[in-house]
């Protein structure tokens, strides 16, 4: 099997891993798997297309605006999801609220971009040859971003007081409250950082994979699959789960064709859930 397949798998796996990581960031303090998360990916792709592709803005300026937009989206998303969840007593409130938020964002993208798929030039157009295979700088950037986000997230959760508070809330919200930790701002923070993370990968990965305005749900589902294989709530699980489905997809795709790649990832999900109902690194959760 050629090395190129593995490199492509590593790239795709990194994309899924970042998506899963951003979901984990939201999940930890809220116990919510956010169906609207993938819309952040589309935001990154859309703004990349708009700013780099159409307006020809300089890179730094584009990234700054992207982050500001992601902050805004995270803020709005938190209200759209948490308000119904707090007001409704239904066990299914979270899923319906996040699904509705996903639909609203998706149609907003569809309204703005009719018959457009997002693609633009690589930020740095250069390939690195590795034993006959090629790794473009753009792909390398995504892989590095994945590692960077994992390390920063890990260090943030372990080293900073706010990060530790997030872990504390994830474990027991009541006890966190009596220690004086305010849960609501932490939840806002989680939605905002989660959106920034996923928007960044959407921005960086789009030149390689073409993204449609309505593709948010697809990326959400890929992220879910990765997170669930790894174990919901575990950053390590998100990364490993992402890499597993990325590699699997790439290998099976080259071997049996495109559809079978997608098949194989969902099949892997089903197998893992039957064998290990809480994922590879997950603890038993009941969700909301």
């Amino acid at each position: 099997m050629s090395l190129q397949i593995w490199i492509d798998g590593l790239f795709a796996g990194s994309v899924f891993a970042i998506i899963a990581l951003s979901m984990t960031i939201v999940y930890q303090p809220t116990r919510i798997m956010n169906f609207a998360q993938g819309e952040g990916f589309v935001l990154g792709a859309a703004l990349g297309y708009q700013m780099l592709g159409v307006w020809k803005w300089p890179l730094i300026q584009s990234v700054v605006v992207l982050i500001l937009a992601a902050i805004l989206m995270g803020f709005i998303m938190e209200r759209m999801v948490m308000l119904p969840v707090q007001l409704s007593g239904s066990k299914f409130a979270w899923i319906i609220a996040t699904l509705a938020a996903a639909m609203i964002f998706q149609s907003a993208f569809n309204i703005k971009y009719v018959n457009v798929t997002f693609s633009y030039f690589d930020i740095i157009e250069k390939d690195i040859p590795i034993f006959g295979a090629k790794l473009s700088i753009q792909k390398l950037l995504v892989i590095l971003l994945m590692l960077l986000i994992f390390v920063i997230n890990d260090q943030f959760l372990k080293r900073t007081l706010w990060g530790r508070s997030i872990r504390a809330i994830a474990h027991n919200p009541d006890t966190s409250t009596i220690l004086g930790i305010p849960t609501r701002p932490v939840i806002k923070l989680a939605f905002i950082t989660g959106t920034i993370v996923i928007a960044l990968v959407g921005f960086l990965a789009t030149p390689v994979i073409i993204v449609a305005p309505a593709a948010g749900l697809f990326f959400t589902i890929q992220g879910f699959t990765a997170a669930i294989i790894g174990g919901v709530g575990s950053p390590k699980g998100a990364v490993i789960g992402g890499l597993i489905i990325g590699m699997l997809d790439s290998v099976v795709r080259s071997w049996l064709g495109g559809t079978w790649g997608l098949f194989s990832t969902f099949f892997a999900l089903a197998v893992i859930l039957v064998l290990k109902p809480n994922g590879l690194f997950g603890k038993r959760v009941e969700g909301r």
Binding site: M33, I221, T259, F263, P277, E286
Partner: peptide, 23 residues
């Protein structure tokens, strides 16, 4: 195949199966 799954995971399995069926 999903009798052991808790409710969140059950939802996710159905989601995945839905996609498989469509494909």
């Amino acid at each position: 195949i999903s009798l052991r799954a808790t409710y969140l995971y059950f939802g996710m399995i159905t989601l995945a199966i839905n996609l498989i069926a469509m494909e």
